[in-house]
Design a protein around this nucleic acid. Structure first.
Length: 272
DNA sequence: ACCGGAGCCTGTTAGC
DNA sequence: TGCTAACAGGCTCCGG
């Protein structure tokens, strides 16, 4: 499941093959993934002839700026999305849902087994991105800012971490890993955390996400890098999907519970 | 403010 | 062995 580190890895891999390239055609095999504009024809008309001038990431969104500055193409991979630049001559994989043809013999292909991924073409990116909380790895996101953003919140901490308006980019894997780092049980209510615990959680968010980026993502379900190879973060998780296996710190079997309809993994001894 | 549930989806897996 | 049902989950919307 692509979260911030996985999306960052995808963006870095796409930058070289995509920036400077021009869209020449667009083919949609599953138009439901296109949220805006309303119809495929409009999307096709607005991107044809446009050149990608920049690609970046905001939370889990991939943001492609097109020349002229009037259009921004935004893609969210959700659960099983996979975005890659491949030669047009290559057979189209059965899970390719939307295909952007480029002028020089390549395609930007959006593969997505479960069709949860979303495509947006907007003139103002804020239409999609404005509601997001701060980027957890950027300088403005200090421990102080984190404390303020959860101040007064009574919700259970794990679902709170998954709320993209509080902090952007954390998903199920890195929420569990951050809480393990901070030795906080995922079912604690946010208003019971001490300042020291909140600071530790802030550090846990930063270090687990950075570790994920350094290892080029966690290939636990279907996630692979644009070139099809696996990331390495799945080999470095402390608790995620390790149910029943011994905690690396104390040997106690990792437990699995469900919080807000999400499977949640933690060490019942290390995490208080 | 917060919670729970439905919906979007399909490949994999658990259970009969 | 072969079938069905449950499960996985990021995000949005709805009702309470």
């Amino acid at each position: 499941m692509p979260e911030l580190p996985e999306v960052e890895t995808v963006v870095r891999a796409l930058r070289d093959p995509l920036v400077g390239r021009t869209f020449s055609e667009f083919e949609s095999y599953w138009p439901n993934q296109i949220v805006v504009p309303d119809d495929v024809e409009q999307l096709r008309a607005r991107i044809t002839g446009r050149t990608v001038t920049a690609i970046s990431r905001r939370a889990k969104y991939i943001v492609m700026t097109l020349d002229g500055g009037e259009e921004t193409l935004i893609v969210h991979l959700k659960m099983t999305g996979h975005l890659a630049v491949v030669p047009t001559s290559k057979p189209v994989h059965k899970h390719v849902r939307n295909l952007f043809r480029l002028t020089d013999g390549d395609d930007l292909r959006f593969r997505d087994m479960r069709k949860f991924g979303r495509i947006y073409l907007v003139t103002d990116p804020d239409e999609i991105l404005a509601k997001l909380g701060p980027e957890p790895l950027e300088d403005p996101f200090t421990a102080e800012v984190f404390r303020q953003r959860i101040a007064g919140r009574t919700r259970i901490i794990k679902p709170l971490l998954l709320d993209q308006t509080i902090v952007a980019g954390i998903g199920n894997i890195y929420a569990d890993e951050s809480l393990f780092f901070a030795k906080i049980r995922p079912d604690r209510h946010a208003d019971t955390l001490t300042k020291a615990e909140t600071d530790l959680l802030w550090a846990g968010i930063r270090s687990s996400l950075q570790n994920g980026i350094d290892r080029e993502g966690a290939s636990i379900d279907t996630y692979v890098k644009p070139d099809g190879t696996k990331g390495d973060m799945q080999n470095a998780v402390s608790v995620f999907r390790r149910t029943g296996n011994p905690c690396y710190d104390c040997g106690t079997p990792i437990e699995r519970i469900v919080l807000a309809q999400r499977s949640t993994h933690f060490c019942p001894i290390c995490q208080k």
